[in-house]
């Protein structure tokens, strides 16, 4: 606030040249001074224009995403083979193979949800317990090791997790139980889960550290243990941040691409058996990008329809997360 006021004051001061000291200047130098001031003002305006244009580009990117996905999705529904009814109610997704083509989004959608749910089932307990540990229990020295380890996990490229799923998790699952396919939803889901643990833990930890110490001290004063403080007081107090963390992690899991493209397989199916192959929306997009598909066929436009569905899902999850954080945030001043 103070900064705001000061700047405004200085700014007005600059504008009102009447306030400057009257000095015995020659007329020429006064003219020169005015010219310099005007030049400076022009430069400032120019700079603001340049900065504003750069900032405006971010809006342009969003507009371009909406426009491209919107226009091409409309094109998709204009094709003869496709109807809105089929897209939303058909249970088969079969756009590539010759003969009978089917464009029901449900198999891809359930595949995406299956893998996201497995991912969240791994990441939410792990991430939240890690967050509680880091924020409430961990000795600074343990923190100094664990935090960078989690950041390291967050910085590893997703294709590496895909490879890990294929080369380690899948063989492990097959060894535990013979029913697992070489490409299966569980393996990809676990890898996605590992991938989003750092998102859950870091956002949830930030939310829990923002809870003031007075609340914890209150619990101790009533004879509570650290567990009571962490789980019964700090956790509920930070719940808005924790829910936001889970929603963001879910958005990330839904949009995760390389892991599912490598480990989940490429058969879209409407099944909930995590031992079998499945395909997500992102997996389908990669499959399309790898094959030589013409630029105008119905398969090509189906890419945009799937991308639009994916975008709508992640966009609403992100918005919901931001809204929960703002709406339900407990304020302690």
């Amino acid at each position: 606030m103070a900064r705001d006021l000061n700047i405004r004051f200085l700014h007005e001061h600059d504008m009102n040249s009447k306030n400057t000291l009257e000095m015995p200047l020659s007329p020429e130098s006064r003219v020169r001074g005015q010219a310099a001031r005007r030049a400076r003002r022009v430069v400032e305006a120019l700079i603001v224009t340049v900065l504003g244009t750069s900032t405006g580009i971010t809006l342009l990117v969003t507009a371009a995403i909406l426009l491209v996905l919107g226009v091409e999705t409309v094109q998709f529904f204009r094709q003869e083979e496709v109807t809105l009814r089929e897209f939303f109610f058909s249970l088969r997704w079969n756009p590539l193979l010759g003969g009978e083509k089917h464009f029901g989004i449900w198999p891809l959608l359930t595949g995406t949800l299956l893998i996201s749910v497995i991912g969240l089932a791994v990441a939410v307990p792990m991430g939240l317990v890690t967050a509680i540990y880091l924020s409430e229990y961990a000795h600074p020295r343990v923190r100094a090791v664990l935090k960078p380890a989690l950041e390291l996990l967050a910085g590893i490229p997703t294709v590496v997790y895909g490879f890990f799923a294929l080369a380690f998790i899948t063989p492990l699952l097959k060894w535990l139980h013979e029913g697992f396919n070489s490409y299966n939803a569980l393996s990809a889901g676990i890898a996605v889960g590992i991938l989003i643990v750092p998102i859950v833990s870091s956002i949830a930890e930030d939310a829990m550290r923002a809870v003031p110490n007075a609340l914890r001290e209150g619990v101790y004063g009533l004879g509570g243990t650290r567990f009571d403080a962490a789980v019964k007081v700090v956790f509920p107090a930070a719940l808005s941040g924790i829910v936001a963390a889970v929603l963001l992690a879910m958005a990330r899991a839904v949009g995760e691409t390389m892991v599912v493209a490598l480990a989940a397989g490429s058969t879209p199916r409407l099944a909930y058996d995590p031992r079998l192959e499945t395909q997500t929306m992102t997996g389908f997009m990669v499959q399309m990008a790898m094959g030589d598909v013409s630029n105008f066929g119905v398969e090509y436009y189906s890419l945009y329809a799937v991308a639009a569905t994916l975008f709508l899902m992640t966009f609403s999850l992100t918005l919901l997360g931001a809204w929960v954080r703002r709406r339900y945030q407990e304020k302690y001043e």
């Binding site: 900032t55 949009g255 691409t257 992100t318």
Partner: peptide, 30 residues
């Protein structure tokens, strides 16, 4: 307007990167 831009940047950070790929394919490649 700036507040809208701020919100927009947060949302852009949450857009899956494969969607940017589709955008690039349309806007830059073709």
């Amino acid at each position: 307007a700036l507040h809208v831009i701020e919100l927009n940047i947060t949302n852009l950070a949450g857009v899956p990167s494969v969607v940017y790929g589709i955008l690039g394919l349309t806007v830059f490649v073709y």
